[in-house]
């Protein structure tokens, strides 16, 4: 686009490939956990179905929609920075941030209710349940917890990117960091797209 990029060590394509390679490691990382889930579900099918009934489908569905909207807003922010609309970009990123925070708040209450009912790994009440249910809740807390950790990392990344857009470090000719953050955020969304049916819907 502009010649002043030439001496600037700026490689849009290269940065993006790097981000995708990182995303692949994440996919395989979560993929491994999904395989663990698949094996245990195969071995303890009925217990998994019973345990899944404890989860609230509506909270899960609301959180799915929240993440989908936040994915759309961060995707739109990339279009808007290319259109040189800085203010709109910041508004869209802020919307994404707020949605991410709402997701975490929902998650907090959801976990809180489960823990109140004694359904957490290592609790005495859960020990009285079957082996399959112990495994289900172990996987539930580990996988949604790991996902929530990714949301928190995403919130930090989006905040940094928003400040960079504000300071014009990221602009229409140089926005790969925004694009890569977007890719990361969509990855978090995709993982949730699978967590939702596997833990909430299949009862």
């Amino acid at each position: 686009m502009k010649d002043n990029n030439i001496n600037n060590h700026y490689d849009h394509e290269g940065s993006k490939i790097g981000m995708w390679l990182f995303i692949f490691t994440e996919l395989l990382f979560f993929g491994g956990l999904f395989i663990v889930y698949a094996v245990y579900r195969y071995k303890h099918g009925t217990a998994f179905e019973l345990a899944a009934k404890e989860l609230d489908v509506s909270i899960g569905a609301i959180n799915t929609v929240i993440l989908l909207i936040s994915s759309a807003t961060i995707a739109m922010s990339i279009s808007s920075i290319q259109l040189k609309k800085r203010k709109l970009t910041i508004i869209l990123l802020a919307t994404t941030l707020i949605l991410a925070l709402i997701f975490l708040v929902n998650k907090y209450f959801e976990w809180g209710i489960k823990i109140e009912h004694g359904l957490y790994p290592g609790s005495g009440i859960l020990q009285q349940h079957g082996y399959g249910e112990i495994l289900f809740f172990g996987l539930y807390f580990f996988m949604t917890g790991l996902h929530a950790l990714h949301i928190i990392i995403g919130i930090i990344l989006i905040t940094i990117i928003m400040l960079k857009v504000k300071n014009e470090k990221i602009h229409a000719d140089r926005f790969v960091q925004l694009e890569n953050t977007g890719l990361y955020w969509h990855l978090v969304d995709i993982i949730w797209i699978f967590l939702f049916p596997l833990f909430y819907l299949i009862v």
């Binding site: 686009m1 990029n5 849009h12 995707a75």
Partner: peptide, 16 residues
């Protein structure tokens, strides 16, 4: 280094 190519801008309508 090669100059960066044009990036396609996807409309808000598509995303919606």
């Amino acid at each position: 280094m090669e100059k960066s190519e044009e990036h396609k801008i996807i409309s808000f309508k598509t995303y919606t």
